[in-house]
Design a binder for these strands. Structure first.
Lengths: 345, 345
DNA sequence: AATTGGCACTCAGATCAGGGGAGTGCCAGC
DNA sequence: GCTGGCACTCCCCTGATCTGAGTGCCAATT
């Protein structure tokens, strides 16, 4: 049975270990914290913590290191978010403020966050599946080239240039505009995609639908599909190389996950947030994603109805209180900015 | 004076060292290559190569390792491109073929190249400064939002969504369209940008130009600026972690350069190509860019008038013949695809 | 019952010495 | 100009020893 003081000892071990990067012994705990008891007493507590598998000893006679389970208890029960310094708050606002569209804003967000924390910063694009298509534009260029532009009410734009080999006269364009508009404008992305698919599957039976229209609808289908896919923006991957010694194995799987995106996307989506919108995934909990030596902390933010996450990826041995505080602050500010944006329309 | 056989010895040393990752001694050269002379003779040649600083010994009595200068001589005078296997050629075509616009094509290019070589692959966007603006589209959305779309004759599209706070009625749009069209359509990006800047600097004196028009032209100026900036697409950064032991120091500066882009952009631009369009930059030659432990090989490719480069970044101790052959093959195929594209219009 | 000081014990890591071996440089002879 | 021979260098592996930080346990104390 771990006592209350036992938990405080765990807290001390996590803090000191993150700080010094060395296994922490009973004596150094007594020195660095004022428990008012002797090293032998701490040792007894540590023995209990070890029974509970909250800490472990790298070798028989060395200091102790938190286990993944230990970090979990620390984060869930012992950690208080470390409030940001005024300078840090200021840094966030100056990073995030500025002109530009959603893409620019998210890029600035991850840059700022990685600068603030020294970890890899990740932000999910707000989900567009529930956004609705507010505008479709077809622009014919010379030589049969064509641009298809979709805009959602959440402010995302997708554009695609294709070199169709079909001749597109004005009549064909008008026809196509009306068909595409009927199919998706005012509909949600999800619903629109469904209707487009239906159209495509029946179109071949209807002889009076021109081939050009079908070709254009096919492009629209591709673009909608892209909208439905969630995406990430990241920054600070190079930090992993600086912190390489924090990882037992190679940082290769981490860099690969960053490049692939899809793994991190799933990981970020599947994390469970607490009532404050904060979520953590620690060490071996990430094993299914091949990231058993890493931790992720994330915070929900709101973007006009849909919600998404902004987070940090780093070594299991990271400073959770600071990093959680950072993602929460950034998420809140981001939410505020997106709301202002909404109101400004 | 290095003899002809001396150079062959250098070739053998480079090949074996890249192969085994261990300093190569006179005896192993005799074993692995058929020079028809004894180890002692090879040793004499090696002494000369060392005098010329083409090879060096990590310790007094160990095998030799090529210096950066040695690699340079190897690449310039001794290396023959290693022809790709049919399977590799096939891989290139199947990677590059496929639907999609320029962005998609370049992404597939770097993915394919990194897969083929195990190095970091980089491709420059074709320069758009000399491309001309073929089309401008202004689309007003509800709530004062506005999309500004530019298209060049080389097929690049840029789009920007802004939430202007200025009310945009149909009259204002017509007016703005005509002004912007007169300024840039049919002009090169460079020239267009100049004319836009002139317009903006004189516009404040002309009271009969509406504020909305000026605001829109200002957005156009930003987009043109973005066009003028060269950009890179990269893939395979994770490979650096796998080859980490090939770098004496940390891979941090490399990952940072990859993230920053601007350093690599300059490096890629400043490399000097030979008559075949191949360029290499080896080890310390990259010191000004903070990449003194890395090498870059690149090949020019043509994209509708402008030209750009596709290359590989890796450790100085890389397989130059294979990598040069790979970038050349990919560059040629890429050129062909872009030409076909052009003809298909 | 909790805490404490004492003490034996463990084990990683540093330091040192002693080969073994790969490789060199040099030289005399072919 | 090439070769075999030989002394020499120095990395690296192995084993031995030592040190010190830290533990586990126990009997004594509060």
């Amino acid at each position: 049975m771990v006592t209350d003081r036992g938990l405080q000892v765990l807290r001390a071990i996590v803090q000191d270990y993150v700080d010094t990067h060395e296994p922490v012994g009973s004596k150094s705990i007594v020195e660095r914290h004022s428990f008012g008891v002797s090293a032998a007493t701490i040792r007894n507590d540590m023995a209990l913590l070890e029974d509970e598998e909250l800490i472990a000893a790298p070798h028989t006679s060395s200091g102790r290191v938190p286990t993944d389970k230990g970090y979990r208890v620390f984060v869930d029960h012992l950690a208080e978010l470390r409030p940001l310094s005024p300078a840090q708050r200021h840094a966030i606002t100056s990073f995030l403020d500025g002109p530009g569209d959603l893409d620019d804003l998210l890029v600035r967000t991850v840059r700022g966050l990685t600068h603030l924390t020294g970890q890899v910063a990740i932000v999910q694009y707000p989900s567009f599946a529930r956004a609705s298509v507010s505008h479709v534009e077809l622009v014919a260029l010379e030589g049969g080239r064509l641009i298809v532009i979709l805009v959602t009410d959440t402010g995302r734009v997708s554009q695609r240039l294709v070199a169709s080999r079909i001749e597109l006269d004005e009549v064909a364009m008008v026809r196509a505009r009306s068909v595409v508009g009927d199919l998706i404008v005012g509909r949600s992305v999800r619903e629109g995609a469904q209707r487009v698919d239906e159209f495509l599957s029946t179109a071949s039976d209807e002889p009076d639908i021109p081939a050009a229209t079908v070709a254009i609808v096919r492009i629209v289908a591709e673009e909608l599909e892209e909208f439905r896919q969630d995406r990430l923006v990241m920054a600070g991957a190079a930090n992993l190389a600086r912190r390489e010694s924090d990882f037992r194995g190679s940082i290769y799987p981490l860099l690969e996950a960053i490049e692939e995106q899809v793994t991190l996307l799933r990981l970020m989506s599947e994390m469970v947030a607490d009532e404050q919108g904060l979520a953590t995934s620690i060490g071996r909990e990430n094993e299914p994603f091949g990231l058993g030596e890493a931790s992720v902390v994330a915070s929900d933010y709101d973007a006009t109805g849909s919600h998404a996450r902004v987070g940090l990826l780093g070594p299991t041995r990271m400073d959770y209180p600071s990093n959680l505080a950072a993602v929460r602050a950034v998420a809140r500010y981001l939410t505020r900015m997106l709301e202002d944006d909404e109101n400004a329309r």
